[in-house]
Design a protein around this nucleic acid. Structure first.
Lengths: 339, 339
DNA sequence: CGACCCTGGACAAACGTTTGTCCAGACCCT
DNA sequence: AGGGTCTGGACAAACGTTTGTCCAGGGTCG
């Protein structure tokens, strides 16, 4: 006997529907006799009643679902983010709809239907290297329904980001501490906001040691493995190459490792490599990849909080997740520079 | 002016709500004058009307959402599956709710609320090594609401699986073709249905060459990297170890590679390794991992089809996805046996 | 010319909830 | 004893959609 409705519960308990609803929702504004309340609770339990979400959504004009849209689920970088989002959402009584296929990207029907059909109350958007921000904001009727993850800040839209400066600075400092002086940066595309911030942190750390980045040691080719390969080839084939590189993304770092190996460049003997973002796959390459662990789970959780707050009327904020602080995860790809 | 409702459209077009609904849904059973139909379409477009999903769900007793539950999103094995599911679902007018955190696992509140609150019409479940099938089926009021992915067959429940026998046989045959005669199997837990099937394929291929598996060369430790490490240590430390192993899972294969390296066993010089499932991460280790590519995307798509078919009254089927057929992706971890 | 049958569309019920309002009785007070 | 205040709960509207049924007018046919 599935599908017990509120009417069934009320009838079984011998009360009106409204009383049943108020009891089961713990409505504080209402006075019900304890014995009656118990009858309702018992009936609900007996019939294994669960509120129909469609009915509830219709009445409350709220679906209690939010969407998380990422460029691709394939990217290991986003798995921790996903976990953080899911856990915080569940804690708040929300479910998460995951959008990752291209048909769900901003600008597509799939994306806009999410909001216009009121399937979700809001969207968490992690933009890819190629998705343009204007495309999103213009298609949006209500800026409160969206929160950007790892991009921005954007006027009137809530954003949540990692402390990329500190992360990149920490990676750089790790190399400085090992004794490196010629340090390169393999960065994402110039359009990526995270890339800009990581370049800042990189420069800051260098400046703290009285150094400056050599632009021939810096690339902005993207956050993919092939991009990392290209970057490594570019940087290492020039005369007077760096003895170490900070890679802004772990996938690109895998590419750097592979290309260095192919070019006969010993890592970490002749070249140290450290990447921003820690994933378990960092154990796989030879040498295993030293990384800076960023609080991705907390990023996801914070993103949910900010979105929910904004939806319910809060102001657009630009949150930066600094807790827990970035930390170096030492593996095998970094060592002192060659003598 | 967001949130146009059907009533707004009807009013603007000067027709009744029912006519507006029928026109916009292309109801074939009804006769509307062409000019009237156009007025409705224009009004809908002008007001950028989109049907409210809560209202529709309530009326049709169907949410047009289905859930995909996997042990963890972190697992690269499942990313292609996710993509296949999402694309097929979208094509059928469904959205996908992703459940992965432990709070969403079978037996938890999160899981059962999905169905009892009618948030989703059905669930696609990829069980983990540890989730017990009984826990799921017992909590289920209606067997038509679920489809198992990669496990089963189970009585009265639709299942969809890969052709694991052929996949494992192909991997084994690849090693046989290279000239190997002592071939081991690093398998998943004995409780995993996929493991059983892959062991079958392994044995079949061996038998085809007039060989039999040596049980000292077979482990059933699980589908994780540490499990792979343990398996390798176990198999390789015994006297007269195999010259090649088939690993039933790519994560475990990474573990085998790492452990072999640590033990000083040369791959592929002294030991060839081939894994079932192809992921892009196979390029990362040294040597790069040879795999057998399985049709994961198609598995996801088929799972959606089967679930939707079952929901709408079809029989419980046990589908096996054989198209495209498994194929060896040759990288660097396999070679002829040592002389 | 009356009985029919189309055509094109309107009416209204129902899906399951939440929530504002109202009311009957019991109790209190002076 | 009469007016007032609580208590405990019932009534009903509304959220937006789909869909079964009904109906007025105009045409057709015998």
């Amino acid at each position: 006997m599935p599908m017990a409705t509120l009417r069934d519960v009320a009838a079984h308990a011998g009360v009106s529907i409204s009383v049943a609803s108020r009891v089961l929702n713990d409505d504080p504004e209402v006075r019900i006799r304890a014995e009656t309340r118990q009858r309702v609770v018992d009936a609900a339990r007996l019939l294994s009643y669960a509120p129909n979400s469609a009915g509830r959504s219709l009445r409350k004009a709220r679906s209690s679902v939010l969407a998380l849209v990422v460029p691709d689920v394939t990217n290991a970088t986003f798995t921790d983010l996903t976990r953080g989002v899911e856990e915080e959402a569940l804690r708040r009584g929300y479910s998460v709809l995951l959008g990752s296929s291209e048909r769900m990207q901003p600008g597509t029907q799939g994306f806009s239907r999410l909001l216009s059909e009121r399937r979700v109350d809001g969207v968490l958007l992690q933009k890819g290297d190629d998705t343009r921000g204007e495309l999103v904001t213009s298609a949006l009727t209500d800026h409160r329904q969206i929160t950007f993850v790892n991009s921005g800040p954007v006027e009137d839209i809530s954003t949540v980001a990692l402390d990329d400066q500190t992360g990149a600075a920490l990676a750089t400092q790790h190399l400085l501490d090992l004794g490196h002086r010629r340090i390169g940066l393999v960065n994402g595309l110039p359009t990526a906001d995270t890339g800009r911030r990581r370049a800042e942190g990189f420069a800051t750390a260098l400046a703290g040691a009285g150094l400056r980045a050599d632009e021939r040691h810096v690339t902005e080719l993207g956050y993919t493995l092939p991009a990392g390969r290209n970057a490594a080839r570019l940087i290492l084939s020039r005369p007077h190459p760096p003895t170490a590189v900070v890679v802004a993304n772990v996938n690109a770092a895998f590419g750097v490792l592979l290309e260095a190996r192919e070019m006969g460049v010993d890592v970490p003997g002749s070249l140290s490599v450290v990447a921003v973002h820690d994933v378990w796959e960092a154990d796989i390459p030879v040498p295993a990849l030293t990384t800076v662990k960023m609080p991705m789970v907390e990023l996801g959780a914070t993103a949910v909080s900010e979105l929910l707050d904004r939806i319910s009327g809060g102001p657009a904020r630009h949150a930066v997740v600094r807790d827990p602080a970035p930390v170096v995860v030492l593996r095998e790809s970094t060592a002192p520079p060659p003598a």
